[in-house]
Nucleic acid binder design. Structure first.
Length: 280
DNA sequence: CCGCTTAAAACAGACTTATC
DNA sequence: GATAAGTCTGTTTTAAGCGG
């Protein structure tokens, strides 16, 4: 018994005739007869009343038809799900590092264009996200780049300039030693840069405070609680209001690249393809 | 030697033709 | 509409080739 048999059964039931069903399905009449016969043998019961002018369903046949209609409807839906290239659907499992300023815009725009796709997003640090993408646990991820990995392809999302933010217009590297440093949680790329720089300058930070929300960090900085490092764009609004002041970082620490990574070799589903294309 | 891909051969079963 | 016999198609099995 296969889908062909079910389609044949459905057609014979609908048309009330083996010959008519054969014409509609482009089979010879004998083939249709055989399929019906096999179904009846399989289920060990007749499904039709035979009479001079065709066939009609009996009780068992009507019961059978209910299920067959359901099965064929489900199969049609399944086909649509995977084969319809015009409308990507299903789920897209993505990962991201804490702060990707463009991300809300990307996701909102993508959702508007492809409402059938369920996007799930998990936050983690770059290294962990790379591992998850390599191991097929995620379809792709936004991480700090550039990423050098033989199995991964990457697409540039944003190049941001990092700045040091404090509450005073003047800045002296030595004063960092007296100020608490406000960062988001462990492993964040910005934090790593700041730590590298301070190490090179031979400065041991007085205290490091962790926050998860960037707004909280910036407002704390505005109140003179400490200093932080963030992309310049995220701080422009507060800077214009003279609440905080930006200071340039040494060039080697100032640029932060965000890339979207995905496996080179894995089959690119039309859902992932539409996402890549959307970001392009 | 192992795992994987490709090519060839064997087989099953799906369909047609012919007939009742 | 059913059945038998023959043809054809597609699948499975087997063997061989190709890196690592």
């Amino acid at each position: 018994m296969d889908l062909r048999s079910l389609t044949i059964f459905q057609t014979v039931a609908r048309l009330g005739s083996v010959s008519a069903a054969a014409r509609e399905l482009n089979y010879v009449q004998s083939n249709v007869t055989m399929h019906i016969k096999q179904l009846e043998e399989k289920f060990e019961t007749p499904l039709f009343y035979r009479h001079q002018r065709g066939m009609t369903l009996n009780t068992e046949g009507r019961k059978m038809l209910e299920y067959v209609d359901g099965i064929l409807r489900d199969v049609a839906e399944l086909k649509h799900l995977f084969l319809d290239n015009d409308t990507p659907s299903g789920t897209l499992k993505l990962g991201t590092v804490e702060i990707v300023s463009k991300l809300p815009t990307i996701l909102a725009g993508y959702y508007e264009k492809y409402p059938n796709v369920d996007v799930s997003l998990q936050a983690d640090v770059t290294e962990a996200l790379i591992k998850k993408v390599v191991e097929h646990e995620l379809d792709g991820a936004f991480v700090s780049g550039p990423v050098k990995h033989a199995l991964l392809a990457q697409q540039l999302i944003a190049e941001e300039e990092l700045v040091l933010v404090s509450s005073s217009p003047s800045f002296d590297i030595a004063s960092v030693a007296k100020m608490p440093i406000l960062v988001s949680n462990e492993g964040c790329g910005y934090r790593a840069r700041l730590a590298l720089w301070l190490k090179e300058e031979g400065i041991e930070p007085k205290r490091i405070m962790e926050f998860n929300i960037i707004e909280t960090i910036l407002q704390s900085v505005a109140l003179g609680l400490g200093i932080t490092v963030v992309p310049k764009e995220t701080v422009t609004r507060m800077m214009e209001q003279d609440k905080v002041y930006c200071h340039e970082l040494p060039q080697q620490y100032a640029s932060n690249t965000t890339v979207f990574i995905y496996r080179k070799d894995a089959f690119i589903t039309n859902t992932l393809a539409s996402f890549l294309q959307y970001m392009d």
